[in-house]
């Protein structure tokens, strides 16, 4: 074939990505439900036949969840308060996460790109890293007092490291070849920051954001056990103190669902922005 002839006559087309047909989706949903439904059934019968005395039945928990969400069954201090606690926790999770991302992404890029900043900050940050977030709890209570600010700080700290480390990794592992290609095409070194470094490290940055957000939901419970009146962590602690196991389980379920949904959102944004990456389309 000579150049300029009929385009791509004999070349294979890229595999077309047909959206999965309904039966396949339905099947996937069923497969995903088998294990949880089995566990639920086990839980149900274990309570019914008295193998587990102190645990409420799934039905009780479900009933309590309805009351927790909209009220009208028990009408106690926790009735129809779900949205308040959820909003309180969400604002801390997303606030702390956003702050962590705003600090960690630029800092990671700087550490990854600049020798001097790396020499200055990397040893310190690596030294602080092994200290678990939970170990910061007492100190953060002293620094920020009992309450929301302390929880916010812990969430920030929990999300900070995964974002920072993955950003550094992404920036440092940009293929050298791509810088060569950019410079022989006339792209200046400053312009390469936006045209090469940033897009090339985006997959790693997203991995960090995803891990960071997961950890933020993880840390929030610990953070809210420090005497905040509202929040899902507080609900779980109160449930324990009051021996209201239904409440404890409800809190756990809400955290699980909220964390799952926020992870799905990040994954959706990621798949959209990283369409070009063979390991991210979906």
């Amino acid at each position: 074939m000579s150049a300029g002839a009929v385009p791509g006559t004999a070349e294979a087309e890229p595999a077309p990505r047909v959206p999965s047909p309904w039966p396949a989706r339905l099947r996937a949903t069923w497969m995903a439900l088998i294990v949880p439904l089995t566990l639920l059934a086990f839980w149900h019968f274990a309570v019914k036949w008295g193998w587990m005395q102190l645990i409420p039945s799934p039905y009780d928990v479900g009933e309590y969840m309805i009351d927790f969400a909209v009220g009208g069954i028990w009408d106690d201090a926790f009735s129809a308060t779900l949205h308040i606690h959820l909003l309180a926790s969400m604002s801390r999770v997303y606030g702390g996460f956003a702050l962590a991302a705003i600090v960690a992404v630029p800092l990671g890029i700087l550490i990854g790109r600049n020798e001097m900043v790396r020499a200055l900050l990397d040893p310190f940050l690596q030294l602080m890293r092994p200290v678990p977030v939970t170990a910061w709890l007492p100190l953060s209570m002293i620094l920020f007092g009992l309450g929301a600010r302390s929880a916010f700080f812990l969430v920030f700290l929990g999300a900070f490291y995964p974002i920072l480390l993955n950003t550094i990794f992404g920036v440092r592992s940009v293929e050298k070849r791509l810088f060569e290609a950019a410079s022989m095409l006339g792209c200046s070194e400053t312009a390469q920051f936006f045209k090469v470094v940033l897009p090339a490290s985006l997959p790693s940055i997203f991995t960090g954001l995803r891990l960071g957000l997961g950890l933020a939901w993880f840390v929030i419970v610990v953070g809210e056990m420090t005497g905040v009146p509202q929040g899902l962590g507080a609900v779980i602690m109160d449930g324990r103190t009051l021996s209201r196991t239904e409440l404890v389980i409800c809190g756990m379920i809400v955290i699980g669902v909220a964390g799952f949904i926020s992870d799905r959102i990040v994954v959706m944004v990621m798949n959209r922005l990283l369409r070009w990456s063979p390991s991210h389309h979906g």
Binding site: R177, L178, E180, A181, A182, M184, L185, G186, V196, P199, A200, L202, L274, W276, S277
Partner: peptide, 15 residues
């Protein structure tokens, strides 16, 4: 830009 390089491993920008 007056000297363009074609690499064996292509060196295309994947994004």
């Amino acid at each position: 830009p007056d000297r363009g390089m074609v690499f064996q491993d292509y060196g295309l920008f994947p994004w």
